[in-house]
Design a protein around this nucleic acid. Sequence first.
RNA 1: GCCCCCAUCGUCUAGUGGCCCAGGACGUGGCCCUCUCAAGGCCAAAACGAGGAUUCGAAUUCCUCUGGGGGCACCA
Length: 497
Amino acid sequence: MTNRLSPARVRFAPSPTGSIHLGSARTALFNYLLARQTGGQFILRIEDTDRKRLVEGAEQEIYEGLHWMGLQWDEGPDIGGPCEPYRQSERKEIYQEYGRKLVEMGAGYYCFCTADRLAKVREEQQRRKESPHYDGTCRLLDPDEAAKRVATGEKHVIRFKMPREGTTTVTDHLRGDIIFENKHLDDYILMKSDGFALYHLAASIDDHLMGITHVIRGSEWLPTFSLHALIHRAFGWQEPTWCHLSVFLKPSGKGKMSKRDAVELRNDGNSFFLKDLESLGYLPNAVVNWVALMGWSFDDHSEFFTLPDLVEKFSIDKLNPAPAAINFTKFDHFNGLHIRSLSADELASRLVPYFERAGIQADRETLVKIAPIIRERMVTLDEAPELAGFFFKAEVTPEPTDLIAKGLTATQSAEAARKSYEVLATLPEITAENAEPPMRALVETLGWSLGQVFGILRVAVTGQKVSPPLFESMAIIGRDKVLARIQTAIDLLEKMV
RNA sequence: GCCCCCAUCGUCUAGUGGCCCAGGACGUGGCCCUCUCAAGGCCAAAACGAGGAUUCGAAUUCCUCUGGGGGCACCA
């Protein structure tokens, strides 16, 4: 396709502090889409400057989640790239250098206040109903004096020297100009006393050094947006295009997703976490499709999109700043849509692990045959074993009472089964085409309804009251097994007479 | 408490001054199809938060209010 947009360099920058959830999955997706459609680069950067919050295995989980969604990055900690390293914990010296520079330029200053004192100040302010902020004690220190204290090894942080007066205007691509009163802004800490940069500094430096053209991130960054812009401006760097995505609200629409909500969701058979979605039976394309349409839309009627569709159609100009309540019912709908869009072959492959997990030996050949007849009967893939397990079992065990058709007696039901057996037994092979017409004729002469007779057979052959189409199912199961199962049913019915 | 953002059917959304007594989708109800269950088709109910202002004309622009959300850490 033709594209007038210049190549975008974007980054997805999660911190490895927990499981990757749908909100960050969407952020990653939008970044990826912009990169791919403009022929730019999608960079994965791990923001692990907070050593205390690291979670073992979280980084690996990020890789797996992104891969599962089908989002491949062009540069990252695992594959390297021209702006290495891509793990912020390995970029400590870079941040320190820029931190020093900030102080030298007079845009930042050393602060020696202890965490204890800060906590007390905050407490005091809150008691007085003031908004918590740094009181500016060290801002007044003589810079040379402060530098000397730092040289002697005194514990310190670096703070940003926020302008005290006037306003700062920043531009968000979806919201336009946002004006902050500088007097409401705080002298944020940029560099911790352990020598690690805080997010604000580290991200700004990295975004600049890595040549990021578009920062697409969550709206939780809106309150500190001015700080980030100001850091860029202090260094004289060009600002990227900023896009702040709305948050996902819990299904009720009341508040954003919390840990508690996440647990509740899981109890309901849903999950907010990417890693759970595969085993719950969701297709990556469905996740991508669903999540893309929360906060973005193409036009007034298109809803079905695959990843390549989205690469072509996505646009940051159509991003919606309003928060969106997550809707799992619609997720199910999209999953069904994507399941039905799969070829028999693809669906069969997708189904293999679910049968395995259910302890059912499902051969590929049969799986390909049943795929077309169970395709429109599933909402999630994990339903397949329950729906189609009978294809793979040596015998089924119907509930005897289910064999008695509604409106018929056990005797009548047994007769229907016997007569059906006779008709089917005359066939050298059962196919949907050759079995259905004579069976319909039989039902006609019997004088009962299709639903009654076919219902008996359905339970007899599949062991279930609900199943894929009867004769297609019989064809796949095979004549001998079908007859054996009907015989078993007849025996069962006769015992109830 | 302070700062920032947001505001169309229950939910996701289209809509950028007249094409809108507001369109699509999920869900809901009904009908059709039908061997069960689905899928599919058709139909229906369902929204511009309130008040001002601008304009010949406002869902669309501006203001106020209300409501919702986010943030206020040596977390990200």
